[in-house]
């Protein structure tokens, strides 16, 4: 598989996440260091299901899933920081 071994980043573009700022996350691909391109696989999701989850606790939209970890209140900076941890 082409994407095997890559870090998977799923950006939620569902209603709640979109109005809470997920549209800005679409820029992630252009804002992260170019050398990460072949290490990270970015894609969009129709809804990560977190918005309907009353147990999402203190986590807030927009949501991004990095591999199996859910990030709430996601911003480009927050996602890049997380990726840094995973890449080094």
């Amino acid at each position: 598989m082409e994407n095997e071994g890559k870090i998977r980043v799923r950006i939620c573009l569902g209603t709640t996440c979109f109005v809470m700022g997920a549209s800005k996350l679409q820029e992630l691909e252009h804002l992260m260091p170019p050398e990460w391109k072949d290490k990270v696989d970015i894609s969009a999701d129709t809804c990560l299901g977190m918005c309907q989850n009353s147990n999402s606790g203190f986590m807030k939209a927009p949501f991004v899933k990095i591999n199996d970890e859910m990030i709430g209140g996601a911003t480009v900076e927050k996602v890049i920081d997380k990726l840094k941890e995973l890449i080094v």
Binding site: I11, S43, D45, T46
Partner: peptide
């Protein structure tokens, strides 16, 4: 599959 980039002020199609 979902298109990554929004068109206009709306999320893109899937």
């Amino acid at each position: 599959t979902t298109e990554m980039f929004a068109k206009g002020s709306l999320p893109a199609n899937s």
